[in-house]
Computed example of a mutant assay.
Amino acid sequence: MPSEAVPWWRDSSLGAAGSARISAISAWQLAPLATEPMRFSEVAPSVVPRQTVVSVEISDEGTTETGIAAITRYLPEGWKEADPPLENLLSSWLGFPVAALPNEPTTEDIYEPSGHFLQAAVTLAGLDALGRRTGLPAATFLGGIHRSSLPAYASLPSFPDVDGAVDCAENAADQGFRSVKLHASGVVDVDVETIAAARRRLGPSMRLIWDASRAYDVSDAQRVGHTLDEHGYLWFEAPLEEDSSPALERLARRVSVALVPDGMAQRSVGDWARDLTNGIWGGLRLDLTRVGSISFALRLVRLAESMGVQCEIQSFGFPLSQYANLQLMIATRSCRFFECPFPSAGLEDGIVKAPEVIDGNVRLPAAPGLGHGVSVAEIGRDRPLLTPLSS
């Protein structure tokens, strides 16, 4: 990958993209602020899912191509959008002056993407445009197409009770999923009962995953980890705060189930490498739409590959975010599963359907680029335009 100091669309090593430049950007808000709040555990704060979509027009020797990408954000209830535009945060990165970008104040929300929230979307929209221009899947430029499909797991919401969680898991199994991720309630007595009940009712062949969403302290995480060991769960995600490395080291020594970090955690590749060397993580996790750059995401994937662990790429979010992460999954064998929000009703945008799960698997989309095939005309209908930018 080119140096981060040179935008990828202006780097001559990329051939077809070498002489291209961004000539226009538009951004839309697709998910209304009134979207139903959700929680990643019953002890976590309520957040509102919200989607920002970006289109990037790339010009090259008299021709243009437009790409589209989006990020899913989880904002605190009652959050209000700022009125005054912020003087361009990305002008040097984009390579031309931009009049204005939405001014959205930094929140103290652990679920926020790193850096300016539009940066990942702009980069991925450019990648989508490159794919459309060449007629190739974006996976081609992320390391090559290593497979045409992969298994999907149903990623369930958090439930306050055992029956609610396991009934939902059984519903997913009835719809063809052979892998299910349950989210913790954060109430340990409920959670250990849910872990056992899910295995009992879904049977030994169902692949089960547990996501704590940072809900536990060390002693509770150890108790949950032993229960996961007993019932053969694949991994234990986000058991503690990611910055509590000594506690995570103790937990990793005391349980057998693989620990995997929160896919929304923002840390350096060096920090992840240190933790892998110290035996904390049994796998890594990332979301391509939430990291600062494509090159950072690829370094993390290569780190996992070099250390012989999985990099379980996150794809929870609105459909456009799912498509972007699916392309990275296709470009590496270090990710075992596509994460499919289940049920999906709370994360539908009316623009494009999520990647289809058929017999428990998701396939590489036929459309080039990120694979969603969405046009600007489809996005712009009855949607609030945040800002049109042009060079």
Score class of each variant (00 low, 15 high):
4 E>W: 05
4 E>A: 11
8 W>K: 00
13 S>C: 07
14 L>V: 00
15 G>I: 02
20 A>R: 08
24 A>W: 08
24 A>Q: 15
26 S>Y: 03
35 T>G: 14
42 E>H: 05
47 V>E: 14
49 P>H: 12
49 P>L: 09
50 R>D: 07
53 V>K: 01
56 V>W: 07
62 G>T: 03
66 T>M: 12
71 I>V: 15
72 T>W: 03
73 R>Q: 15
77 E>D: 14
77 E>F: 00
79 W>A: 14
82 A>P: 00
87 E>H: 06
90 L>W: 08
90 L>I: 00
92 S>Y: 06
92 S>N: 10
92 S>K: 08
93 W>Y: 13
94 L>W: 05
96 F>N: 00
97 P>D: 13
101 L>Y: 10
104 E>W: 13
104 E>M: 12
105 P>N: 08
107 T>D: 14
108 E>G: 15
112 E>L: 06
115 G>L: 04
117 F>K: 00
118 L>D: 02
119 Q>Y: 02
123 T>S: 14
129 A>W: 08
134 T>N: 12
136 L>T: 04
139 A>R: 01
147 R>T: 02
147 R>I: 03
148 S>T: 10
150 L>Q: 04
152 A>F: 04
154 A>T: 06
156 L>C: 11
160 P>K: 11
161 D>F: 08
161 D>C: 06
168 C>E: 10
170 E>G: 08
173 A>P: 00
173 A>S: 11
177 F>M: 04
178 R>G: 12
181 K>C: 03
181 K>P: 02
183 H>Q: 14
189 D>V: 05
189 D>Y: 04
189 D>I: 01
198 A>K: 03
206 M>P: 02
209 I>W: 13
214 R>E: 13
215 A>Y: 09
218 V>N: 06
218 V>Q: 13
222 Q>T: 08
224 V>R: 05
225 G>V: 03
225 G>L: 10
228 L>E: 06
229 D>K: 05
232 G>M: 04
237 E>C: 11
239 P>G: 09
240 L>K: 05
245 S>I: 11
260 V>Q: 09
260 V>T: 10
263 G>D: 10
269 V>P: 01
270 G>N: 14
271 D>L: 08
272 W>R: 09
273 A>W: 01
276 L>M: 11
283 G>Q: 04
284 L>S: 03
286 L>C: 07
289 T>H: 04
300 L>N: 05
303 L>P: 03
304 A>K: 00
305 E>D: 13
306 S>G: 11
308 G>A: 08
309 V>Q: 09
313 I>A: 05
315 S>H: 02
317 G>I: 04
318 F>M: 07
318 F>Q: 04
321 S>I: 00
326 L>M: 09
329 M>D: 01
333 R>E: 12
336 R>P: 00
341 P>F: 07
344 S>K: 10
345 A>W: 14
346 G>A: 14
346 G>W: 07
346 G>I: 01
349 D>F: 11
357 V>A: 07
358 I>W: 11
358 I>M: 15
361 N>W: 09
367 A>L: 11
369 G>R: 06
369 G>L: 12
370 L>K: 05
373 G>D: 12
375 S>M: 11
376 V>I: 15
377 A>W: 06
384 P>M: 13
386 L>E: 04
391 S>Q: 11
